[in-house]
Design a protein around this nucleic acid. Structure first.
Lengths: 343, 343
DNA sequence: TTCTCTACTGTGAACGCTCACAGAAGCCGA
DNA sequence: TCGGCTTCTGTGAGCGTTCACAGTAGAGAA
């Protein structure tokens, strides 16, 4: 009745069926399934061929019920969800994590905690043990979800350095400070001295670090920090436009601009074009992220590449290790300067 | 040993614990959990308070083991994965589906079938019954995954009209043809008569339909179709640029341009700017999608809004109905013209 | 009173798997 | 020959639920 028109899925074969076909017991099949230690080559082979013959796939629910593991992990985004639209990096990270987990045959559950309700629902879901661990994207400080999960003892890896540095928490991040240093050094090497900066949000470590790198290099080069050349943004395109406009009005002699994200840099390019400045002739512009959109604009953006594929791989690696009982770990990965038309 | 530093997750309470605290039996607790029919108000209340007291959350694995349902659904993308980066619509859809499912307390598993290996792995996973149904994004024709899943009797809902129209398959789509008609009508109403078009890929129904709408309206208005004004693209930004360039060379008198996606429209704007055409003074440009990026460019793009929130909600609704045994259903949702600066 | 019906409750079995344990077989050294 | 070891295999129990069934209590009808 219920199955009337869905094509009538047949009952899938169980470990019992495989055992029968292979002429062995459940236990032996189970051992083959889980690494195959203490199994004779003959049994091994018989079981494998029975699996192929029957099309057997393990029932993960039955397995989870007894092992206590769910063999799935959650990808949790607690940022306000406009970020999901605006930030191309998010896509790359999500894809990378999904694929890295797929290599371990672990499904990824996507969780979006935008509202307070969702936050509660998801926290309950996770702490109830429905996932073995969580990949967390939440750069802003004082995130209650992160704290709650940590207290509940849920294995956790954050993307990006978390704000409260005291707690023993795993994270994987690009070397923001070093990336910023590279970019500003590059701008200096072009002979620019009046270098403006549109920072990221300064309540996030990424924003703080990139600004710190900027200041460090200028100071090392003997260029005085001019606060009129510093304006803060929030990684959104609009804030890039606004930031560049403000800088142009405060320091019309600006000859270079370091923008802490590509998306903001796109906005800044618009502002510069409107103001009649040529890029890179009048003003050199450097971004951060190396997001796909940046590559395709005009002029193509010189930027700092974040190694997203490595970041996602490391996040998964660290999380699985943590689930396996290892200590919290911090991984910081190097960035790379990518020269294009805007400098 | 293994749990050394993960905070030591405690064993969560079971239905048995709840029953004991509430002073009833497992069965009664289970009944309360599943709708609460045939349960006295007193027992109802006792169980609920026991659940609160113990912090009980149902063990989905145990439930799934017996019900045969997994109470989770898969979101499957079989497009080549660059699409994931380029297309902002994908994000909106993914978010919408995740939230719509969250309202039903159903987790979403993200599945990316880029390579042949992943394809096989995922097909096995799904047909093994690890998800109850699949939300499928796969516009290109002849997708083997879709066909395999359908044959296996897996409940399926596609986003966008599938190419092989014969099969009985559920889908949810925006009314591409009608949207295109609206846009071309709008361009005609501005007095434009030499209206070019950059189509979507013509092996997808969306691409075909949007072109059909364009031709219909022109014909109705008594404007002859000039094939020099028709060029095909693939929804990528680059193909928008190339398409507009080709049109300009073939028909320099073009006074309007309908581009079948916002991303391509962005590319087309670049080409027009390079060619010295002013938008909208010399050429009116209309896009399709109403993606966030389009809103923020200069000039802001007049476009056709696809109702992504409704699309994702409908996809989930139709899929759950299909899982519940209902027939395949096709849902076509209306689009909306959004006027901005480019026309 | 007795019978039937409805509303509610408890219980055993089963879902498909892993784990611990017991046992068998083969080999080697005493 | 015996005992002990290693390697391999089968078996029962149990994970936390739901489901079917049996059973109880109370209300209303005969």
């Amino acid at each position: 009745m219920t199955m009337s028109n869905t094509g009538g899925r047949r009952k899938p074969p169980t470990i019992h069926d495989v055992a029968r076909v292979a002429g062995v017991s459940r236990g032996t099949v189970s051992r083959v399934l889980n690494g195959g230690h203490y199994v004779s080559p003959a049994a091994q082979e018989a079981v494998n061929s029975a699996i192929r013959k029957t099309g057997y796939v393990v029932n993960r629910h039955a397995r989870s019920l007894i092992t206590g593991r769910s063999d799935s992990i959650g990808f949790l985004l607690t940022e306000p969800q406009e970020k999901l639209f605006e930030d191309p990096n998010f896509n790359v990270l999500l894809r990378g994590c999904t694929q890295a987990l797929a290599a371990h045959d672990i499904p990824l559950l996507l969780m979006l905690a935008g509202t307070e309700d969702e936050r509660r629902r998801i926290t309950r879901y996770i702490t109830a043990g429905h996932v073995d661990g969580v990949l967390l994207v939440s750069s802003h400080s004082g995130d209650p979800v992160a704290e709650e999960l940590r207290e509940a003892g849920v294995p956790l890896v954050q993307c990006g350095k978390p704000m409260g540095l005291g707690s023993k928490v795993s994270y994987v991040a690009a070397d923001d400070r070093d990336g910023a240093r590279d970019m500003v050094r590059h701008l200096l090497s072009l002979g620019r001295r009046r270098i403006g900066v549109v920072t990221g949000p300064l309540d996030t470590p990424g924003g703080v670090e990139r600004l710190a790198g900027y200041k460090e290099v200028l100071t090392e080069a003997g260029v005085a920090i001019d606060e009129r050349l510093v304006v803060s943004g929030d990684y959104s395109r609009a804030s890039g436009t606004a930031g560049a406009e403000k800088l142009l009005s405060r320091a019309p002699d600006m000859d270079a601009l370091f923008v802490a994200s590509d998306l903001m840099a796109q906005g800044a390019l618009t502002a510069l074009r409107r103001a009649g400045r040529r890029v890179p002739e009048d003003v050199s512009v450097g971004g951060f992220d190396d997001s796909p959109a940046a590559t395709e604009g005009t002029p193509a953006l010189t930027t700092i590449r974040q190694p997203w594929d490595r970041i996602s791989n490391e996040m998964v690696r660290v999380l699985l290790a943590r689930i396996g009982g290892e200590d919290a770990a911090a991984v910081i990965l190097p960035t790379e300067l990518v020269r294009r038309e805007s400098t």
